[in-house]
Amino acid sequence: MRLCRLDEVLDGQARGFSVPGLQRKVILVRRGVSVFAYRDSCPHYEGGTPMAWKADRYLNGEGTHLACHSHGALFEIETGECVLGPCLGQRLTKVPVRISPSGDIEMVREPAEEELG
């Protein structure tokens, strides 16, 4: 499943994508030529809740971390680990993605049954 082209996510920025059939968006964060992908689902409350404060606004003000804009939890961009806030020690769920030779960012596998809404 193709999400977008690499150059459609600006370096140091994040974007959210609705994937048909998936309950939660997929967040892409770009750092240079690396892309990190997570489900848009903060682990603080049961079931997970959306994290942006506005479309595509997933990062904290300094752009150093993914943030949950419910209670300010901060997550490491590279690992998805919560380093400050209510879900301390928990992690965002990684979404396996790859960059195709033609520069498309793709989800590596089709979503599993339990992820479908």
Binding site: P50, M51, A52, W53, R57, G61, A67, C68, H69, S70, H71, G72
Partner: peptide
């Protein structure tokens, strides 16, 4: 309720 950049709903 809405999310916000002030870290609260």
């Amino acid at each position: 309720y809405f999310n916000s950049p002030l870290g609260t709903h």
